[in-house]
């Protein structure tokens, strides 16, 4: 186990979280990664609304959808809901 992990003497009992969930990155659970196509996307924001992790945001300055891969678990709901097939789920490492 990596030395960055704490010992049983250092952590709170009963699984009490000593860091917020935003610091506990879960993106490495992902098998498939959503890949966004700016050309096909109509900025309807359905992906943003449906993402159960809140990992998709619209950047008004760049006019781009931004995916936070530290938290995206690759569930594919965004790709499923996209009316324009602007999101493709690609096997991690093959994108």
């Amino acid at each position: 186990m990596s030395p960055e992990y704490k010992s049983w003497k250092e952590i709170p009992i009963a699984g009490v979280c000593w860091v917020p969930s935003t610091e506990y990155k879960t993106g490495d659970w992902r098998t498939y990664k959503p890949v966004w196509d700016s050309e096909k996307c109509i900025r309807c924001m359905l992906c943003h609304i449906y993402c159960p992790e809140g990992a998709i945001k619209y950047n008004a300055e760049t006019d781009e959808m931004e995916f936070n891969y530290d938290f995206c678990k690759g569930c594919g709901i965004c790709a499923n809901e996209c009316p324009k097939e602007a999101i493709k789920m690609v096997l991690e490492g093959k994108e």
């Binding site: 704490k6 049983w8 952590i11 009992i13 699984g15 009490v16 979280c17």
Partner: peptide, 22 residues
Amino acid sequence: ITIGPLDLYDYYFEHKRQQEEA
């Protein structure tokens, strides 16, 4: 606070050791 949430191979073992200590 959150009590008893998801705890995988990274910390579950440590929490069980705490129970043994108790």
